[in-house]
Simulated assay, not measured.
Amino acid sequence: MEIKPLVLIVEDDKPICKFIKVSLETQNYKCIETESGSHAVSLVCSMNPDIIILDLGLPDIDGIEVIEKIRDKTNAKIIVVSARDRDRDKVEALDKGADDYLTKPFSVPELLARIRVGLRNINKHADNCEEISNFKLKELEIDFEKHKVYIRGESIHLTPIEYKLLELMSKYRGRVLTHRFIIKEIWGSYCENETQSLRVFMASIRRKIEIDPAQPEYIITEVGVGYRLVDE
């Protein structure tokens, strides 16, 4: 018997919560819901959900605090669905450990697509007990053992930093990576001055792998937040 993915919905607006729950259950997801951030933390520990859909404006504790409390306790993918649309709110949620961020109002197809990406990434992590030796996305290939990158079958030259950036994004394929996260991972510590350097390196990578860097099909800019490597 196929096990249905379990989705925890943390939302204090009852009509929205019901709307999300009904939409997901028609797609064969099993759902549990709560309007309390504190109860959500308990449910994460007791029910072990696969996906967590989290509002930030909760009646007891802020959603950001919920992320901080649960991030080290679960491998579930956290998708924030919030009316807060400022870049700093998105960056803070993602930096604290959220995997994705949708702004209300949102479309059901978009939410379902983000959930599918989250589940795919969970399954990849579970299947890859041994470190993979290569990565393939459309016509982009990375040979991790040889540190080689190919686009449309042709080997391309990347600087060491460019390679490390592409390797990092491939490991988090489909997830929005903030400027702060990328800079800390690549340079070891965060410095605001490195943001411009990051943009330069990303532009250089795009020139090498994209057919049209102005309309990228691999590396997407999340304005004011960071970058995302697409997931087919």
Rank of each mutant, 00 (worst) to 15 (best):
R71G: 10
V230H: 01
V66F: 07
K77T: 04
Y218L: 01
T26R: 15
A93V: 02
D89R: 07
N28I: 05
P105Q: 13
E131G: 11
D62T: 11
K30D: 09
R180K: 14
I64F: 11
V41D: 01
H179T: 06
C31L: 08
V41Q: 02
I161Q: 10
F106C: 07
E185S: 14
L165Q: 02
E167R: 13
R173V: 04
I61T: 08
L198G: 00
K96Q: 13
P109L: 05
R199N: 10
I9D: 04
N75M: 14
Y29P: 03
D60W: 09
Y190I: 13
G57A: 12
L177R: 03
P49F: 08
R120A: 12
N121A: 08
S170I: 14
A214M: 06
P15I: 10
I205E: 01
L24D: 09
Y190M: 14
D13V: 06
I61F: 06
V149T: 14
L229C: 03
E141F: 11
C129T: 12
H125F: 11
M169E: 01
F135Y: 07
A214T: 08
I78F: 10
D50W: 04
V91C: 06
G63S: 05
G224Q: 02
E167G: 07
R86A: 15
E11P: 01
V200D: 07
V80G: 08
P15S: 08
R175D: 05
I53T: 13
N48L: 06
T74I: 06
E35R: 07
Q215N: 15
S155T: 02
Y227Q: 00
D12C: 11
I115G: 03
R173L: 03
E154G: 05
